[in-house]
């Protein structure tokens, strides 16, 4: 029981509940299907990115380049489709974006797994390299007239309805991608040996090496996978926003993404982290970002709240680890 209470998941779920109650008290229309749909919609891109970052953290690394990578993938893909294959349907375009993302992720993977460089510094570097390359050599012009395939996708709604008060609500099919990514990642992490190897490396890299796990290969694949997810998140973001912007503000979502993952209980030391926790973390971040405005708290406080959430998400397990260590020693 105490272990359940001490978990980040429980804490985050509690905070979400409290938040909803405050929201409901402040605004009777808060607990409604349209609000839920808004939140789900806002969580799509953040969620996919967070799942990717979770995998990196489980393997014992950190990645601060995913949003930069996502923007490169979305822009390159849109540009390519617009100029070369304007008739391309969205499935192929999505695949293309994922491949671009995977290739960029492979660069991170080569530097980190291949050359053994520290993950923070490499991804800090590639964060700039990706962005700088895009804006210097690919283009800095905003594409507001998306190719037809991507426009079609953005119009495809999974749920559509009218509320009692006559307001419309809808949830785009893009949400299915988040569900798909979560299911796929769950399968990879918990049902394949590769996924178990990711956990094993995060738990003890030396033990992994001794038992014969190809540590470098697994690390490399982790970054390729994260890259592919980043590419996917990027193109979904572009099609939902109906614009491909090489200077997209998605770039600033890196820290909220990281906050969501550490809130969910993943640790920088590696080896721990769950998809449930990450999704709860994403929910909380989305809830906070969307509701602060609704609750009349100025937008400017968002980054303060997210900063606190990062500290809370990291501080809780760190504090518990200290206590446990002191008890055992």
């Amino acid at each position: 029981m105490s272990s359940l209470l001490g978990r980040n998941e429980t804490l985050v779920a509690g905070v979400i509940l409290a938040f909803c109650m405050v929201g409901a008290l402040a605004d009777p229309g808060f607990l409604s299907i349209p609000t839920l749909m808004d939140l789900l919609r806002a969580g799509i891109v953040l969620g996919i990115l967070a799942v990717g970052v979770l995998v990196v953290l489980v393997s014992g690394g950190i990645d601060v380049s995913t949003t930069s990578l996502a923007i490169v993938a979305l822009y390159v893909t849109t540009l390519f489709v617009q100029n070369v294959t304007p008739e391309m349907g969205w499935p192929l375009a999505f695949l293309l974006a994922a491949v671009v993302g995977a290739l960029l992720g492979a660069i991170n993977g080569l530097l980190i797994a291949g050359l053994g460089l520290p993950t923070l510094i490499v991804t800090l570097g590639t964060l700039s390299v990706f962005r700088g390359f895009l804006l210097t050599f690919v283009g800095s012009r905003l594409i507001s007239n998306l190719p037809g395939g991507l426009r079609d996708f953005s119009r495809a709604m999974m749920i559509r309805g009218t509320n009692a008060d006559g307001s419309f609500y809808s949830l785009p099919w893009a949400f299915a991608f988040l569900v798909g990514v979560v299911v796929l990642t769950w399968f990879l992490l918990y049902r394949t040996m590769l996924g178990r190897q990711v956990f094993a490396i995060g738990g003890s890299m030396e033990s992994a090496r001794r038992i014969g796990i190809p540590v470098r290969r697994v690390q490399f694949l982790v970054f390729v996978y994260v890259g592919a997810l980043g590419g996917l998140a990027g193109i979904i973001h572009a099609s939902l926003a109906r614009v491909a912007n090489p200077q997209d503000l998605l770039l600033n979502q890196q820290l909220p993404v990281l906050a969501a993952v550490v809130l969910g209980g993943a640790r920088l030391e590696g080896g721990t982290g769950t998809l449930t926790g990450t999704l709860l973390g994403v929910s909380l971040i989305v809830l906070v970002s969307n509701s602060l405005i609704a609750l009349g708290i100025p937008n400017t406080f968002q980054s303060i709240v997210i900063g606190f959430l990062i500290l809370l998400g990291t501080g809780l397990p760190a504090w518990q680890a200290r206590r446990a260590q002191r008890r055992a020693a």
Binding site: L258, I310, T314, A318
Partner: peptide, 15 residues
């Protein structure tokens, strides 16, 4: 607090 410096200063930087 025993927080890893990377995350501690990322979070406090936002604050």
């Amino acid at each position: 607090g025993g927080l890893p410096p990377i995350l501690a200063t990322l979070g406090s930087g936002l604050i």
